[in-house]
């Protein structure tokens, strides 16, 4: 062992003090993942607050990990959760099983299911990691109303689907907000 060796050790420390710090200050400082990161799912809403999910179970079908459970329900004129006949009565994603592959997103025929950048899906018990519809639904933005309620936008279905977002602006939905990215965009 040479005389200068102890100093060499200090030298390493000293030199590192002037380099970029790789340590992440999580959870004090949260890292923002890439825009297309596969995070927690979100069930989107139409601009009037109705759910986009029609309970078709295609996400559950597509899921290679069998992490999704869906059961459909029937909308009535008195109790309407989504436009059309059918809505997702029960919706559960089991994050113990989910592998974040995103096949469910691709399968969704109504773009009801998208993924946010939210990655904090850890917990201290298994029960809490089964997310239900309440946990997954997008937050109500301005102009949205908690279902059940009637289709609020436009005179007919054509209006609702095609011009819905435009009509919603008049009802207080701010510019630049789309329904599909409501939640996590707001967080960012």
């Amino acid at each position: 062992m040479g005389m200068t060796d102890p100093l060499k050790g200090f030298g390493v420390t000293l030199s590192k003090m002037f380099k970029t710090v790789l340590t992440e200050e999580y959870p004090e400082v949260k890292k923002i993942p890439a825009p297309r990161f596969h995070g927690k799912h979100q069930l989107n809403r139409h601009p009037d607050g109705l759910e986009k999910c029609v309970g078709c179970e295609l996400c559950a079908w597509a899921c290679p990990a069998d992490a999704i459970f869906v059961e459909g329900g029937t909308n009535t004129d008195d109790e309407r959760y989504s436009p059309g006949e059918r809505y997702g009565f029960d919706y559960q994603i089991n994050y113990l099983r989910c592998i974040g592959c995103g096949l469910c997103i691709e399968a969704c025929p109504t773009r009801a299911l998208t993924m946010t950048n939210e990655y904090e899906t850890a917990d201290d018990n298994r029960q809490n990691l089964i997310y239900t519809k309440e946990d997954l639904l997008a937050p109500l933005l301005p102009g949205m109303e908690q279902p059940p309620h009637d289709m609020r936008l436009g005179e007919d279905e054509q209006d609702y689907y095609v011009n819905g977002p435009e009509l919603a602006r008049g009802q207080g939905v701010p510019d630049g907000t789309t329904v599909e990215t409501g939640g996590e965009e707001a967080v960012r």
Partner: peptide
């Protein structure tokens, strides 16, 4: 019985894709 008549369904426009998948 089933009063949900009259309203089309939200999935109409996207039906084709899902059909194929289904």
């Amino acid at each position: 019985g089933h009063g949900a008549n009259g309203h089309g369904d939200g999935a109409n426009g996207h039906g084709d894709g899902a059909n194929g998948h289904g």
